[in-house]
């Protein structure tokens, strides 16, 4: 039981580490929203294709087509962003195309083999939603810390609180603090169990 728990925990930490590039790029609400939504559609597309393709196609083909589906959805998401705001697209397009190669999306592209894995596929989709929310909220938190305000309007008046938070090093420090806080809460919850 403990081995299963440890394995699940390690997978979550590996996924979080794989998500680090997106968390670092997400230094504001608008870019966080773009990256979060792009991640959600790419992750969902990869997981859905991996689940829906017939098993007889084999693991390699399934993985290839799932990653391809993720890349195509990222391209479409980028086109939508470009239509809505060309300047935002110019800011975000490099990090958007990175989404396809993140560990959670590649993990979702692996074909579920056993019946049990297929039954748990919905959990994978929910996990993707959680990761997307993490990317968006980190963007909002970093924008608040760096400029003292959260706004999609860049011309809104504000005052700098902690400009360091908008830089990549600031992202790593915030991720570390959040991870440490989360771990402390989990430990405290475990200790309080009868």
């Amino acid at each position: 039981m403990e081995i299963v728990e440890n394995s699940a925990r390690n997978r979550s930490w590996a996924a979080l580490a794989g998500l680090a590039p997106l968390l670092v790029f997400s230094n504001g609400l608008s870019i966080g929203l773009v990256l979060g939504v792009t991640f959600l559609v790419a992750h969902s597309a990869a997981a859905a294709v991996a689940l829906l393709l017939p098993v007889r196609l084999g693991r390699s083909y399934t993985f290839f087509f799932s990653v391809l589906a993720a890349a195509v959805t990222v391209s479409m998401a980028a086109s939508v962003v470009r239509l809505l705001d060309p300047f935002l697209f110019e800011t975000a397009y490099r990090s958007m195309f990175l989404v396809t190669l993140t560990i959670p999306v590649l993990g979702a592209s692996v074909m579920p083999v056993s019946m049990e894995e297929r039954e748990h596929a919905i959990e994978d989709l929910v996990r993707g939603l959680g990761f997307a929310l993490a990317i968006m909220s980190l963007g909002a938190v970093r924008e608040f810390l760096s400029s003292g305000i959260i706004s999609v309007n860049s011309r809104a008046p504000s005052s700098s609180l902690l400009p360091f938070a908008a830089q990549p090093a600031g992202a790593f420090i915030i991720i570390g603090l959040v991870a440490a806080g989360f771990r402390a809460i989990m430990r405290a919850a475990k200790r309080s169990e009868p």
Partner: peptide, 22 residues
């Protein structure tokens, strides 16, 4: 897959044209 790639290509070209106009 080919249909999806073609659709993505068309969407990308359309978005690029609209963005240039904007």
């Amino acid at each position: 897959a080919v249909v999806m790639i073609a659709l993505a290509g068309f969407t990308s070209a359309y978005a690029a044209r609209k963005s240039s106009h904007y």
